[in-house]
């Protein structure tokens, strides 16, 4: 019977760790309840999610929901931009020519070696204040037809905050694009040299090699790390609150100040972030499984 014994028999360690963790949680909850003497009150939260609009005679999203929508818009647009930027820069990074390689290297190193918060301030004061007037976003609401405004409202949020949101998107995209660049570079460089030689031997040009041989294989390889980078981006989007982009974290700070219910609101918002990040992770893992199936 000895042979049938499971090779791993240290279950008592697992049990010990579990007991320790449960004890710790119980202790923290106990501390919060007795030492802090805090009266939990969650009742204000629904009111900050939706409010009754007297004019429209219906419910309209209030600060927290507005913030959530802005965060989602920020995330989606900056993911798209970061992906485009990252793929271009990633390909330049593996170019045979020195100039594109240097340009892309400069971009990646600049961004990776500056703390995100500092980057955001630098970006805000020196770059975004130049870009948004250039795009003419400030007077867009006066010049455009109601239809365009509606579309814009759906895609990018309320027109009065357009330049604000666009600044946030560009900032996040620039920032995350550097990480996407590195992922794409690693993906391209993971394709064996023999693939390129095989392609060259049948007369494919450099561009054709990239398009038909290297990139299709590289893309398959970069999907998992890219997915986790995009989830990081969703969470990182909260730092643009520092330059008053009116997304979830920024608006939560407002709610926290006006209600003084700091504990409840931050716990609640943590849960909101968790739900969207986890949903994305779940979606990506499904996508990965499907791609794996497709390949076989």
């Amino acid at each position: 019977m000895i042979r049938n014994k499971a090779p791993y028999d240290s279950y008592w360690i697992d049990a010990l760790v579990l007991i320790a963790v449960v004890f710790l949680i119980v202790y923290v909850v106990y501390r919060v309840n007795t030492v802090l003497v805090y009266n939990w009150d969650w009742s204000f939260i629904p009111g900050y999610l939706f409010r009754w609009d007297e004019e429209l005679q219906s419910y309209a999203p209030n600060l927290l929901m507005k913030g959530l929508f802005t965060t989602i818009r920020l995330a989606i647009w900056s993911i798209i931009l970061a992906a485009i930027l990252g793929f271009i820069m990633g390909m330049m990074r593996t170019s045979r020519r020195l100039f594109p390689r240097m340009l892309s290297r400069l971009y990646v190193e600049l961004i990776r070696n500056i703390p995100p918060v500092v980057f955001i301030f630098v970006f805000y004061f020196f770059i975004s204040s130049q870009i948004t007037p250039l795009l003419g976003l400030d007077n867009i609401s006066e010049d455009s037809s109601p239809m365009t405004l509606k579309v814009l409202d759906f895609l990018l949020g309320p027109p009065e905050l357009l330049s604000n949101v666009v600044a946030g998107i560009i900032c996040l995209a620039l920032f995350e694009g550097a990480y996407v660049t590195e992922i794409v570079r690693a993906g391209i460089q993971s394709i064996p040299k023999g693939q390129v030689e095989g392609g060259m031997s049948i007369g494919l040009s450099r561009i054709q090699l990239m398009r038909y041989v290297v990139m299709p294989q590289a893309v398959q390889k970069v999907v998992p790390p890219l997915a986790s980078q995009f989830i990081i981006l969703i969470k990182d989007s909260s730092i643009v609150s520092l330059i008053s982009i009116q997304e979830l974290t920024f608006l939560t700070m407002e709610v926290a100040t006006s209600t003084q219910r700091v504990f409840e609101i931050w716990l609640f918002v943590a849960a909101m972030y968790f739900v969207i990040s986890y949903a994305c992770a779940f979606g990506f893992s499904r996508l990965e499984k499907r791609m794996a199936l497709h390949k076989a």
């Binding site: 023999g194 693939q195 095989g198 031997s201 041989v213 294989q217």
Partner: peptide, 9 residues
Amino acid sequence: FQQFNLFPH
């Protein structure tokens, strides 16, 4: 080639 170098995708 020795290692075939076919395109796996």
